[in-house]
Amino acid sequence: MGAVTIWPAAVFDGLLALALLWLAWQATHGAGLFRSVVSFIVFGLLMALAWVRLEAPDIALAEAAIGAGVTGALLLSALGRLEYSDDRGASAPREWWLWVPAGLAVLGLLAVVAWQLPTPGLGEHVDSALARSGVDNPVTAVLLNFRAFDTLLEVGVLLLAAIVLWSFGAVARPLVPAVPSPALPALGRLLFPVFVLLSVYLLWRGSHAPGGAFQAGAVLGAGGILMLLSGRARGCPARFLGVAFYRWVWLVWWPWRPGRPLWGSVSLPILSLGQPRRSCCLS
């Protein structure tokens, strides 16, 4: 009986692994940049499934929002600024007879090592200290309490990335949406409150269940991107989301946040679209 219940899971894992491998190969070696980017976004979504299979729902939420969502938006917006017709995919490296065996050897070594890891882990430490941490969700406890300094530096990295993007200045060629859809502005206006509501819910939920400010910020950021994209199509309704406003809100809020980069993850994607306020109002 045991074997019967285990098999479907094993088959699912195997198919997932194969799909991930194929998508990763397409993203890094496939022909055509657009196809690679799309493969990578699907790769991110399937990774979220893998996190669920590995009993990491927090990461699954984050991966779906960040890994597939925000990174995908960033990649597509970068792709929109490149002329990508010149890429015919990576040709096989000339020294393949050297690389392939060496790669396989390293891979085998890594697999053997990973297979034999004893994985002692810190689960017991976390469980015993959880009561004193003030929250019920162990992941939140580690992030905001036990390893809060990591989180502080991480907020620093996010903030730094935003400043760096700013420091590069405006791109000569602003993003031109490939398909201006008439439905997009309405959809953006309609959905933005839902995004806000959902992010508030995730924020509240994080203290006792998978969720938290991180995922909440990602959802809010995705909503902001949608607003921005839809705003570009008709005038400037996205102006109240403009960079200047966000910078101030963010910098005022940042020191008071318990630690998660809520406003940071909101502002980063908006900033990375270049100088949205200016380019938006010029269009």
Binding site: A56, I59, I66, G121, G123, V126, V142, R147, T151, L268
Partner: peptide
Amino acid sequence: DAVPHAIVLTGIVVTVS
């Protein structure tokens, strides 16, 4: 073990930055 989960969450944010 929740520690790697937290680490990966931090890592994902760093990677997206």
